[in-house]
Simulated assay, not measured.
Amino acid sequence: MKNLREVIGIDVSKNTLDVTLYHSNEHSVFSNDGKGYGEMVKWVDAQLEPGSYFFCFENTGNYSLKLSVFLSSNGLAYVEESPMRIKRSTGLTREKTDKLDSYMIARFGWMYREELVPSEIKPKEFQELGRLLALRDQLVRDRSGLKSTLKEQRHLLSSPSTDICCKALQRCIKHLDKQVLGIEKRMQELLKTDDFLYDNYKLLRSVKGVGLILSCQLLYHTGNFMKFDNWRRFSSYCGIAPFEHSSGSSVRRRKQSHYIGDRKMKTLLSMAAVSAIQSDQELKNYYHRKLEEGKHKMIALNNVRNKILARSFAVIKRGTPFVNIAATSY
């Protein structure tokens, strides 16, 4: 991106796109649809030489997905960046408008143009996998809420088996159970459509504590293990990598994880760690050894989470299933 002479910042919302050219500070608004995208490109090309610029905008999920597909299909250079990174680059700001946001996004793109890498649209199977994971997560949350309500109803009523509210809640829960199972079945079918993807999935399942959902999340977030060089980088992305905190001669805090990270991945890895401690003797011994060393339970659990990540990346790199050497030595 460093050879391009202009950055176009786009603030993406549900219905509109606020577009600003960084150097000329020209601003315009377009609709967030195919017609608006075409008008935006015509407006930009009328002021700039084609191929001399790139677009920069925040990853806003479904709102920015259509824009990414349009730019990619038309061969236009763009960078889809994390909203957190852009926000932290703006410094102290008191005003917030869509126009100002688009300018700050353009400013970010120009400041970091030598470091930014052109974004690419995810393959269709990854897009569908992401949608399935998000929908399953929503359905599981809804099911948990209904189960909690059912529990309260049963506690309040003397005859919950005949109450129409309890029956209705039970039918809803059973329906959600079927929907969740259907989504999981579709996820497995989707993995089988790509041999490389399915081979990596089977390798991940060989690691103790790594189930269907965690495997799919790992494949999705790592781009089938193409986006991250090693497990330590991905551990930092998830928010479970410990970092040093010191300053001068007086500030010497213990290493701890940063609060910024993917909370969903963090939760899934925590569940995997709890499961692995119960089913894997090596990890169980490792966890208790850390506790005997005086480590806090959450620190010991975090060590297990990183162990699971290290094993996951290792089986993918080797291309062979995980083998518990300690278990085979008996």
Rank of each mutant, 00 (worst) to 15 (best):
K167T: 02
L190D: 01
L268D: 03
Y259H: 15
F228S: 03
N62T: 13
S28Y: 14
N324V: 01
I183H: 03
S102R: 04
F234L: 11
Y220V: 05
K2Y: 10
E95K: 07
R88C: 13
G51F: 07
R94A: 09
P242E: 05
K284T: 11
L157A: 13
M104L: 15
L150E: 02
R136I: 04
N15Y: 08
T162L: 13
K307G: 05
L191G: 01
R94I: 00
R131D: 08
C172K: 09
K295D: 01
L219D: 00
Y53M: 07
S249V: 06
R233E: 15
K255P: 08
T16L: 12
R113D: 02
L116H: 06
V140D: 04
L219S: 00
F55I: 12
L191K: 03
Y198K: 08
K96A: 11
H258M: 15
Y201K: 00
D177Q: 10
L76Y: 01
R205I: 06
Q278H: 15
P118H: 00
H288P: 06
S89F: 14
T60W: 09
Q188T: 09
F126P: 00
V274G: 03
P321Y: 04
S144G: 13
F30S: 09
F126Y: 06
C56H: 02
M40A: 02
F30D: 06
S73Q: 11
I183C: 01
N285W: 09
G294I: 06
G239A: 03
T149C: 08
L132D: 04
E292Q: 15
Q47W: 07
E128M: 11
L190T: 00
P83Y: 08
G248S: 00
Q170G: 03
